[in-house]
Nucleic acid binder design. Structure first.
Lengths: 113, 113
DNA sequence: GAGTATATATAATTTTCTTATGTATGTAGG
DNA sequence: CCTACATACATAAGAAAATTATATATACTC
């Protein structure tokens, strides 16, 4: 079950960027919950992975943030910049290509169209 | 084109083990060529990545080697041990699960059966 | 002699993740 | 009251895995 991690290495950013693209704005904890939900608990992002990664993307100009107080708790929302929007598209193309190649290499091609 | 790398991080071992499972025995350089061929040049494995990885798997008991001289050149062939055979199957299940989750997260599910 | 292909190896560095810890609020259970 | 869990962020230390660069060696082509 929860052992689908380990191969996550290069795709954390892509996943987070994609979720931000779909949801407009999200905060870190929300991202971890969304990923857990979508993958039915298979993939659990850790704080040690997501926060440094979000900070890095912010520093690179892919994301901007705004902080809100909700129920006495701080929430730091992340949003894509225009640069970020471009980056998601590139990362998604990369991911698509990569998954295709991986399926070829691992003999997992789901019947060619 | 050749930009499908970068996401390769956690799947190098799986790819090499799978190729060894299919081909019985292979040497390092041969693996790089096979991967380049199958992915039409998209994925180029580097020596700095494959040799340490092969050595590690040998040290872990997943692979054994035998060296041959072919046309005045040394070839070090790698083969799966029984432990290695088991490991390929596990890695492939992991990869399948991971790819499924990634497609879900990235909205790339190719129509549900 | 330079460049490419074949073939392996390793060292130095960087990237990225895991693990652990720390802060802080709120709720629920014993 | 103390513990545990959920929410919410952050960072430090260390491990793992890759990139980049270099080295060796043979053989062929320009």
């Amino acid at each position: 079950m929860g052992s689908s991690n380990g191969m996550l290495k290069g795709s954390l950013q892509t996943i987070m960027l994609k979720l931000l693209q779909e949801n407009g704005r999200m905060y870190g904890y929300e991202i971890t919950q969304k990923v857990k939900e979508i993958t039915k608990g298979d993939i659990k992002l850790t704080e040690g992975a997501i926060y440094p990664s979000l900070h890095k993307m912010e520093a690179e100009g892919l994301l901007i943030t705004h902080t809100e107080m909700v129920e006495n708790r701080v929430r730091k929302y992340y949003l894509l910049t225009e640069e970020g929007q471009v980056e998601v598209r590139n990362k998604l193309k990369e991911a698509e290509s990569f998954i295709g190649n991986l399926q070829l290499l691992l003999n997992m091609k789901p019947a060619i169209s």
